[in-house]
């Protein structure tokens, strides 16, 4: 208590003397022996962050497209908006990883572009076309993550530094999700196509009245609302 009073007193005295703010602190010299990531690997990781953001933008555009009044696929819109948020989370996870390894002390301002290029596509003919585009995008991301792992295991800078921890992290956290995600999208494409085929068959073979029950079952799948 005494010390707090003394501190407050001191503070009042000092503030009376100087009115200018001392806004920054001197950073202590911290040993950097523990920072062991090598440049080629860090650069690949940084590129991957932007790739995740780009994927996020693509899914955001898909979400926007399927939300439109004259397109009207709210189930798909919700699915793609969530996918966009997930891709953003991936970028943040990669950032967090680099911070944990002592990286990103400088050059953060250029880590993510705040200017965007035009998106290659903002219109998809139907949900299957968008899912196929998404599956292609995911396959590219998977390939890109595999490339990060390979650069970080055998960087071409004579360091011979094999980044075991990073390759384990990318394999366990990222590749795992990529393969599961790709399987999920492929399944959705299959479902959508089957649904379409079923509808055509129904129209050809029986009256709506008879098939109503079947239609309801097919339509009730939540992702195709």
């Amino acid at each position: 208590m005494k010390s707090i009073v003394a501190f407050a007193f001191l503070a009042v005295v000092i503030s009376a003397v100087s009115s200018e703010l001392h806004c920054t602190v001197k950073r202590p010299n911290i040993p950097n022996d523990w920072i062991d990531m090598v440049r080629p690997c860090v650069e690949e990781m940084k590129k991957q962050i932007q790739k995740e953001i780009n994927a996020s933008m693509k899914y955001l555009a898909m979400g926007a497209h399927f939300s439109r009044d004259t397109v009207n696929r709210p189930g798909f819109a919700k699915y793609f908006f969530e996918a966009a948020s997930e891709e953003r989370e991936h970028a943040i996870k990669l950032i967090k990883y680099l911070l944990m390894r002592g990286e990103l002390v400088s050059g953060v301002s250029k880590l993510i572009k705040t200017s965007f290029d035009a998106l290659p596509t903002t219109h998809w003919n139907n949900a299957v076309a968008a899912l196929e585009d998404a599956l292609k995008t995911e396959a590219e991301v998977t390939k890109s993550i595999r490339n990060v792992i390979s650069v970080c295991e055998e960087p071409n800078d004579n360091s011979r530094f094999n980044d075991y921890h990073l390759s384990d992290y990318l394999t366990g956290e990222f590749l795992e999700e990529q393969y599961k995600g790709q399987r999920d999208i492929a399944g959705k494409i299959s479902n959508s196509r089957n649904l379409w085929a079923t509808m055509v068959n129904l129209e050809n073979s029986c009256s709506i009245k008879n098939c109503c029950k079947q239609c309801k079952i097919k339509y009730s799948r939540p992702q195709f609302v």
Binding site: M57, L60, A61, G63, A64, S67, R68, D69, T70, A77, F81, A84, S85, T114, S115, F116, D117, A118, L119, T122
Partner: peptide, 20 residues
């Protein structure tokens, strides 16, 4: 951002992803 996009489309509008 997502909420705004949803609202633009709720009103029959179209979100424009032109270069920024």
């Amino acid at each position: 951002t997502i909420e705004l996009i949803k609202h633009i489309t709720k009103r029959g509008g179209k979100m424009n992803f032109s270069p920024i």
